[in-house]
């Protein structure tokens, strides 16, 4: 049997949407409320790990492979560096070069939400990639309580 029991699978199906939505909320509103890119990214990875543990690695591996986590990881880090380098248009490294339409709104903060999104993608992909590396890169003979992983 792949993954855990039917109870775990059903509960995972119910809560996985809320976990992913809350992590995206933490990333996007990190400049307004407590949260931010790092926390949201780690929570994305936690939701992904929940899916791997409950459904088994074969089903989830069709969604995200170890190759694609590496690509997302590198592109997130690259995007953060590009945001930093774009500050040279305003004269300095990491300069906040966007116009400010108003405080306490979603599109305020200039480059801070963009950097949050980049860090969120990077951290989520690399944490999920570490778990995938621990799960996939090993022989098939090892068992796991509650089902074969």
């Amino acid at each position: 049997m792949k993954g855990m029991t039917i109870i775990v699978k059903e509960v995972t199906t119910l809560v996985i949407g809320f976990i992913l939505l809350y992590s995206i909320n933490l990333i996007l509103t990190g400049h307004l409320t407590p949260g931010g890119g790092f926390v949201g990214g780690v929570m994305l990875a936690c939701g992904f790990i929940l899916m791997v543990l409950s459904y088994g690695k074969e089903k989830v591996n069709s969604l995200i492979s170890d190759r694609s986590t590496t690509v997302w990881d590198c592109s997130g880090a690259f995007a953060f560096l590009v945001i930093a380098l774009l500050g040279y248009f305003a004269g300095d490294f990491f300069a906040n070069f966007f116009a400010q339409p108003g405080n306490f709104r979603l599109f305020s903060g200039g480059t801070i939400p963009l950097a949050n999104i980049a860090i969120g993608i990077k951290v989520g992909a690399c944490m999920a990639g570490a778990f995938i590396a621990l799960t996939l890169f090993r022989g098939p003979a090892e068992s796991f309580p509650g089902g074969k992983l």
Binding site: H31, L32, G35, F104, S108, A115, N116
Partner: peptide
């Protein structure tokens, strides 16, 4: 322009 000062300092 960031209301959360932790993020303002961090990023």
């Amino acid at each position: 322009g960031a209301a959360n000062y932790v993020m303002a300092v961090l990023l």
